[in-house]
Simulated scan of single mutants.
Amino acid sequence: MKLIFLITVFVLAAESQNTWMPIISPLLSTYPCKDDSDIMVWFEPGLQPKDNNRYYIYANKPFPKDCKIKMIFDSQVNATFVVRTESNDYSRLYLSEGDTISLHFFVPHQGLGFIVKGNEPGVTPYLRSFTVDDEEYCRTPVVVRLPTHLSYTAKTAHCATYRGSKLEKQSLGVVLGKHKLKGDDRESVEKEVLEIIIHKEYSYQPLRHDIALLKLSTEVVFNDFIRPACLFRGDDRQKLQSDEIYGTIIGWGFERNYSLSRTLKQASMPIVSEATCLKKNPFFYSHSLNEHYTFCAGSDNGTSACNGDSGGAFQVFVPDEIQIGDQTTSGCWHVKGIISNTVSRFDAPICDPTYYVVFTNVESYIDWIEQYLI
């Protein structure tokens, strides 16, 4: 069967408007080619039947001047492209006849993203070949079907709700003292979830009161690798050296190569004013920030939280006594915020690290949290 490719090319005369996205969004990811981790697929579980054969492909590769790209799928598809270079020039595209789609880049280009959707309802097209100047990057296509992977991944969800509905407690697990994302850590301990507590005013769209509590089935035993953190309260500000509050975030979220980190990473960033965030992107932050329940933080230098980091703590080191000068003092870490959402790139459903991150303000939920502590 010959494949039919219908291409819609969006050419934007001005800077594209960024959109908001939860950092730990319902988008799931996988690799369509076993031999190349630069090619990724994102897809959304739970779509209506007419849309469940739609997904997003992103190839994080440098495409040189005058290069020719060919892609082959195993069924008919619609493909929607957005192609733009760093200098805002646009590449011309040629569509070849037959069973392949051909792109000809006349200027250098970094990365290629596009949406794929099957022409036949219920039939999902799968990538079988991806070549650049006749060099094959998908020599071993993954044969596992997306609906199967999608079903499996949905059962191992990494947040407390899906589209606003609370997950079953059996679908969540808690691992304490873990450092490596994959593989066993000798010091890590797994815990079952006894109860999921969602804030009664939580909403998914728009994202409001993005906070949940997990009650574990057994008691946690602290050691050198598993330690508690305090909750940040208003009085803690008096012990800090300045009015500017710096926090540390940790996680296994996406790195610059658009894949999850294999080991736990950390970054330091300051809380910035609401006005600073609004100036950066008025549309997004005006809808995401609330003076009591959220705050904005980041360095505007590429250091940020990203997909896979959501739910992580914004931790502030609070000394036991008021700091004076550069003296070293004892103290402990206090959870000031929870990583919630950020601005996504215009050309891919992943975070844009040049923007600030919105955090749930834990300080505003102290009373709500304490009513569930026994």
Rank of each mutant, 00 (worst) to 15 (best):
N60Q: 01
Q323C: 00
E86G: 03
D99E: 09
G183L: 10
G164Q: 05
Y246V: 14
G122V: 06
I211A: 02
L93S: 06
E86C: 00
I115C: 00
Q266G: 11
G122T: 10
Y246S: 15
V116D: 01
V143H: 05
Y293Q: 03
G253M: 01
E192Q: 13
P49H: 14
A313S: 14
G118P: 05
V41W: 11
R345E: 12
H292N: 05
H104F: 03
A79G: 04
S288F: 11
P26L: 11
G46M: 03
A79E: 06
I4C: 08
D367I: 15
A79Q: 06
L146M: 13
K2Q: 15
V132R: 05
H292G: 01
K200L: 08
M21W: 03
L260R: 15
Y293V: 02
G337M: 04
A157R: 03
S16C: 01
G298Y: 09
S91F: 06
T156Q: 14
A13K: 12
V343E: 08
F5H: 10
F314L: 02
S242H: 14
C159F: 07
S310N: 12
D99H: 08
D320A: 01
D133Q: 03
E120S: 06
T153K: 14
T276Q: 09
Y94S: 02
Y285A: 11
E219I: 11
Q110W: 11
I39E: 11
I211C: 00
V82I: 13
K68E: 14
I339G: 00
N60K: 03
K155V: 08
L103F: 12
Y162A: 08
V357T: 14
V272C: 08
G247Y: 03
I211W: 00
L146I: 15
L28R: 04
S87T: 07
V143P: 02
L207Y: 07
S310I: 12
D74A: 04
I271D: 04
K178D: 08
D134F: 06
L93A: 03
L6F: 12
A154W: 11
F225K: 08
I101W: 09
F222P: 05
S304I: 05
V175I: 12
K155T: 10
H179M: 11
G337N: 04
F314M: 02
P147K: 12
K200I: 07
N88D: 00
L214V: 04
L194W: 07
D74C: 04
E86K: 04
N281Y: 07
R256V: 01
K279T: 15
K182P: 07
I39A: 09
V144P: 01
I23Y: 10
K180P: 05
V318G: 11
Y58D: 09
F5T: 07
P62A: 08
L240Y: 10
C159T: 13
R186N: 07
I24S: 12
F254A: 13
R145K: 11
L28N: 03
V175Y: 10
I339F: 01
G337K: 04
E135M: 00
G247S: 02
K34Q: 15
E15M: 03
E44G: 06
E168H: 00
K265A: 03
A267Q: 01
L260S: 14
I24G: 13
N53C: 07
K169A: 03
T100V: 15
M40I: 15
E190K: 09
S288K: 13
F254P: 09
P228V: 06
E168K: 05
F222A: 02
